[in-house]
Amino acid sequence: MKRNVSLSSIFSLVLLAALTAGAPAPALAQAGAAQADAAQADAAIHAAVQAMARTNKQAQLWKNTGKLVKKAKAARKAGDFAKASKLAKEAEMQAQLAYSQFFEGKARFTADRLHRAVGLTPAQREQLKAIDALSRRHEGYKAYEMAERLKAEVVKGHRVYRVQPGDTLGKIAAREYGSAQYWREIYRQNRARISDPNVLRPGQKLLIGAKLAD
């Protein structure tokens, strides 16, 4: 009987030791999770601050963006890491939207001038459609960059036109730009080649470029 009690006691001690050894595991897991949450909150706040700094160089931030970051930092200090991350991500999103909206406006202004331009090639018209699509997707900076490249191409790009018998600047303008009223644009582009806008020689080479709307 004593032997049985002794074996039972030994078994209990072994079981207790095993349970005691395993007790800190949940606490360690919780501590690790808290550290991960804190790191995530710090990263979110840092990303928001960086986005705000980038936007501030070009455009105005939304009124609420700075307040969101302050609240995120306060939540981080109080140990509410989930709230801190949520607020910081919202602030970052607002900063990114403000940045995109600024360049969307610039892209739309340039695109509007290009839409009203005369003499664009089919390829340039396709580029203009792509710019409009980027603006609709709120990819403001990409739309702006593409619009500026296209504008530079339109302004600098010219093709050679050989004057035909009976041509006048008005007739060429009507054929190339859709209206004779743009004859002055052709004259402006070819001042070094045209001494008298009323006199053209058959075979004479003129540079014809797109006319960008004012």
Rank of each mutant, 00 (worst) to 15 (best):
T55E: 09
Q101I: 09
A130V: 06
E90I: 06
K70S: 12
S9V: 07
S12L: 15
A82Q: 14
D196I: 04
R188M: 09
A143F: 00
R188A: 13
K129S: 10
W62H: 08
Q181E: 12
H158A: 00
L120H: 03
I45A: 01
S12H: 11
R191M: 07
Q164P: 01
A48L: 04
R125K: 15
D214S: 06
V69G: 01
Q50C: 08
A41E: 04
R201G: 03
A38C: 09
S85F: 03
A72R: 04
S8I: 11
R54Y: 14
L15T: 12
A75D: 12
S100D: 09
A39E: 12
A82H: 10
K151M: 13
A210C: 02
F11M: 14
A31I: 03
T55L: 05
Q94G: 00
M146N: 04
R188N: 12
D196G: 05
H158R: 06
T55W: 02
R136K: 14
K106D: 13
D42K: 06
H115M: 12
K71R: 05
K156Y: 09
R201K: 15
K106F: 07
V5A: 14
R149I: 07
R125T: 08
L7A: 15
A36P: 00
R149M: 09
R116Q: 13
F109K: 15
K67G: 07
K205E: 12
R136M: 08
R76H: 06
P26I: 06
A59G: 10
A84G: 06
A36L: 05
A74S: 12
R108K: 13
N198C: 09
A47T: 10
E153Q: 15
V163M: 00
F103H: 14
Q58D: 13
Y187A: 02
A38I: 00
K142T: 02
V154P: 00
A72F: 02
A180V: 06
Q60P: 03
Q40R: 15
A91D: 08
G66D: 04
L7Q: 15
L15F: 05
D42N: 12
Q58F: 09
M52P: 00
I172R: 06
